[in-house]
């Protein structure tokens, strides 16, 4: 049975923060095509601020996620503050009492995050948002687990689902957010939020795999 230790594992979150930082310009460029071109700046600002509060404090994975979520909620605003803030907050709530985190714990956490997000943001699958990355990612992850794959293998599926979901936003017409105003003109471009969500999920997957243990 594969698992990761929750305690002293803030490095997973720091890797996510680092990935967003590295891709920030790319994310803004994508947002520029159909939105206002600030998605990378918005994300990097919040994530970097959280980094300062996480580094050197020897936190658990879930506590680090909590700080990331809180920082986004309290200090960032925009739409990314509440959206990712809510997702990370739910993940924290789902994992905070778990010592050894297994595949099903992660699945529940992601599911809770998605539900809270849908409730808050009022977006549905197909609206061309980060939900279109999360939904297929969670689905392929869930099927992989159900089919008896290892945690690591299932995480690969999570990454594959996220990638596919993200890629599919290219052919969608935006129904929500700034890009919705473009109507047909929004077709042909990736969604910025779907892209950042894919980066986050894939980085998380590989970071978890990097500290995987089994018993």
């Amino acid at each position: 049975m594969e698992y990761i230790v929750n305690a002293r594992n803030s490095d997973i979150v720091l890797q996510i923060i680092q990935a967003i930082h590295e891709k920030s310009q790319y994310l803004s460029e994508i947002d520029g095509a159909t939105g206002d071109g600030d998605h990378g700046v918005n994300m990097d600002k919040g994530f970097s601020l959280a980094k300062e509060r996480i580094v050197g404090n020897d936190l658990s994975f879930s506590d680090a996620i909590k700080i990331l979520g809180r920082t986004l909620l309290m200090d960032i605003g925009g739409s990314m503050g509440p959206i990712y803030g809510t997702i990370f907050n739910e993940i924290w709530k789902s994992l905070k009492d778990v010592e050894k985190i297994q595949d099903t714990n992660v699945l529940t956490a992601l599911n809770n995050g998605l539900m809270a997000l849908i409730d808050l943001a009022g977006a549905k699958p197909g609206d061309k948002t980060l939900i279109d990355t999360m939904v297929p990612a969670i689905q392929t992850f869930a099927s992989a687990i159900e089919s008896g794959n290892s945690f690591s293998k299932s995480l690969d599926e999570l990454s594959r689902g996220a990638e596919e979901g993200k890629a599919n936003t290219k052919n969608m017409m935006a129904k929500i957010g700034r890009a919705a105003r473009l109507q047909e003109r929004s077709i042909g471009f990736l969604d910025a939020g779907a892209t950042s969500c894919c980066i986050i999920l894939q980085t998380m997957a590989s970071a978890i795999k990097g500290c995987m243990q089994s018993e």
Partner: peptide, 12 residues
């Protein structure tokens, strides 16, 4: 008060 062209926080 939010950042430029960006919503204020829930907290604010």
């Amino acid at each position: 008060v939010g950042e430029i062209f960006s919503s204020p926080t829930a907290n604010s």
